[in-house]
Design a protein around this nucleic acid. Structure first.
Lengths: 244, 244
DNA sequence: TATGGTTGTCTATATCAATAGACATTTAGA
DNA sequence: TCTAAATGTCTATTGATATAGACAACCATA
């Protein structure tokens, strides 16, 4: 556990800061030898806070299913994971993390049609107001939610993509059926922010958590934009890897 | 302002959540027409909180120099910025954002020698314990801190890099003097976390802020690793752009 | 100069966050 | 079976967070 001090009177409660730090340490493998978090009294000493504050932190982590406290023994680590998510010209959800998990799945949350806003039109190189298909999807790895994405497709070429996606569960396959045998990632923009209400429910996050936001543009092999998407990842579960 | 509700009893104070949201809206250009933040009473109504809570949020933003309240008129937007930071095979700090700001600068905070840890040795493809030069640098754009980085270089090839960097203020130039005419980014890992104490001081962040963390490996044209670095960016000031 | 809209300041109250201490309960191992 | 070490529970107190209401001070403008 790095010796960074925690911040007081910042609008972020100590128990939350400490919970975030312990979660990071778990993901980093700091406690792999024992498979347990250090005793509450030890942590309280390390962080310079009261034991009750540590208990609040561990309670939050237990709520997330990351640790489990056993009276008399200690606090066991139940789960640790931070998926490495490659971002490259050939970025696809399932491919990159396929070797890190047993099963990846993509679920359609919602679908609909809407007119292109100025921003979406600029990205997809179409006219403002042109019809778009919007898909809301949830990416899962081993039945754990990892990302939630909103994607827009030009409706003239991909009017039926929602239905095809619903049956195949794959954007790549849907594209193939609609005459796009292959596509590439043109650009990805990455930002970070606090989790909103949708993130909390869809990604099963605890409030105050951080999400990584990736805005991506995909194009077919003729360099014509086919998909613009905004994906939100649980920051403590993934890591983006940019291979150049 | 997006209609996301704010979270109560999460360990993150309401005033901080709201401050983050307002800052994002400012950066997004939501208030560009008036150049002002909506009145406190309006914001209180929108977020469903007391006016005093909004005042706490605006006070925090004023502390950051983002807004300035004027009695009788309203709260003026003083500054908005979110630099787009390209990540590519030829990523350098100054080049990518050069057209977005008037001046970029890099300052040496500290330098020293240390032995390679297992992790650093693996990245740089050298032996564990081999001597490394460590540089702590601060990247600035128009005199505003944007990123703080820790870099490691194999000492056998780059033993004098600290001194050369101190005079030139450029890694690229230092490499050139040491016989590396060109170098490329091999891989970049991107994560996000809360700001630590060093971030607060060096990046002039308010506590609880988010930082984007980029761990990067650079290699020379023979594909020999020359630099491993961990950079921390103020998440509300930058956006990573991955061109593929 | 009168008015409406805005920020600034004050008091009061309730709840959350954090500390402090004491003791019970459970487990593993000597 | 005793003991040490760990988590579980309880009470009490302090400071930060949030709400509520009232009013002052200031600005732009009709």
């Amino acid at each position: 556990m790095a010796g960074q001090k925690i911040q007081r009177q910042t609008g972020v409660a100590l128990w939350r800061q400490i919970a975030d730090r312990i979660r990071t340490s778990i993901n980093h493998g700091d406690f792999d030898e024992t498979g347990m978090v250090p005793p509450e009294t030890t942590l309280a000493l390390q962080f310079g806070v009261n034991r009750h504050t540590i208990r609040s932190s561990l309670a939050a982590l237990a709520q997330e299913g990351i640790v489990r406290a056993v009276q008399g023994r200690g606090t066991l680590i139940e789960r640790k994971e931070r998926l490495s998510f490659p971002i490259s010209r050939r970025t696809r959800f399932s491919q990159g993390i396929g070797d890190q998990v047993r099963e990846t799945r993509s679920v359609l949350l919602a679908a609909g049609e809407e007119a292109a806003t100025t921003e979406l039109a600029r990205q997809l190189k179409i006219k403002t107001g042109a019809p778009l298909v919007r898909l809301e999807t949830l990416g899962q790895a081993d039945h754990r939610p990892v990302s939630r994405a909103t994607s827009w497709f030009p409706a003239d070429r991909f009017g039926d993509i929602a239905e095809i996606y619903r049956t195949t569960g794959s954007i790549t396959k849907a594209f193939k059926e609609l005459g796009v045998p292959d596509y590439v990632r043109v650009v990805t923009e990455i930002t970070a922010t606090h989790a909103d209400e949708g993130d909390l429910t869809d990604l099963q996050l605890s409030p105050g958590a951080i999400v990584l936001v990736a805005q991506a543009l995909n194009a077919d092999l003729d360099n014509v934009p086919v998909q613009y998407s905004i994906s939100r990842f649980a920051a403590d579960r993934v890591r983006f890897t940019v291979e150049n």
